[in-house]
């Protein structure tokens, strides 16, 4: 059984503690959401897991009692950060950068093609990344991340630039990926209805600390959400048993 263990993680930036003593465990085949208000430390927390920020405490991936290399973690950043003149095909190929030699093996090229087809990106194959829309870029970066078959996939607000259809497609793909590859997905999201619909567990960060880590049905409660977000909300249940969250007004606090 694969497990991501986060223990007493603390991140300090410019002498300010951004994340303080956060501990959590995530298991294989799951999609886990990270929620909280802006500035709660969601991106910093995820970047610390990706080893992109210096941190204290321990973060480890354990597979059947054996600790795996942190290179098995892939991080998909918020879209605004990336631009490149490479083509979509080249961008996805770069996902395997540590295994690439001057002459790229045909097997690898076929792998890129299969992924392009699966993610419905084959029409964009030849286009420069810089010319794509925000949503298309997001899908390409997602493809670049999953081609290396990471054991932990970290997605930072992946749905923010996507329309409803593409949001569903991307989250379905994350779920499929986690299940098929016995991997763990950790997704920062703001849309609480989507969080409820797609998450196996939800991490609530509040002022840099872990407020709650539980099943969606235990997190999507009126009192808890109002306390964290400072917004009056209405929580209803859909016919399929998912929670739908409607913000009402900013009257609390």
């Amino acid at each position: 059984m694969l497990e991501l263990r986060v223990k007493d993680v603390m991140v300090e930036l410019d002498k300010h503690i951004i994340i303080d003593s956060v501990s959590a465990r995530f298991t294989e085949g799951t999609v886990n959401s990270v929620i909280g208000v802006n500035g709660a430390g969601k991106t910093v927390f995820v970047k610390a897991i990706a080893n992109l920020l210096p941190h204290q405490g321990s973060i480890s991936i354990i597979d059947r009692g054996r600790e795996l290399d942190r290179k098995k973690i892939a991080y998909v950043p918020q879209m605004t950060a990336i631009n490149s003149e490479l083509t979509v095909f080249e961008m996805i190929l770069l996902g395997k950068v540590l295994h690439l030699t001057w002459r790229v093996e045909k097997e690898l090229l076929r792998e890129v093609e299969l992924l392009l087809n699966r993610m419905k990106l084959s029409q964009l194959s030849n286009k420069r990344f810089s010319t794509l829309s925000g949503g298309q870029k997001q899908m390409v970066i997602m493809a670049q991340s999953i081609i290396a078959k990471p054991k932990v996939l970290l997605l930072d607000e992946p749905t923010s630039a996507l329309d409803l259809k593409h949001q569903i497609e991307l989250l379905d793909m994350s779920k499929e990926y986690a299940e098929e590859n016995q991997a763990i997905c950790l997704v920062i999201m703001h849309d609480l209805s989507l969080v409820s619909r797609y998450s196996d567990t939800v991490v609530v960060l509040h002022k840099g600390t872990l407020f709650k880590h539980d099943l969606p049905k235990h997190v999507m409660e009126q009192n808890l959400l109002e306390q964290v977000y400072g917004v009056e909300v209405e929580v209803t249940e859909t016919k399929k048993g998912f929670k739908a969250i409607t913000p009402l007004n900013v009257s609390i606090r």
């Binding site: 992109l52 991080y75 998909v76 770069l94 670049q144 290396a148």
Partner: peptide
């Protein structure tokens, strides 16, 4: 960041 998260 992208290069780092690709393992470089």
């Amino acid at each position: 960041d992208r290069a780092k998260s690709l393992g470089i």
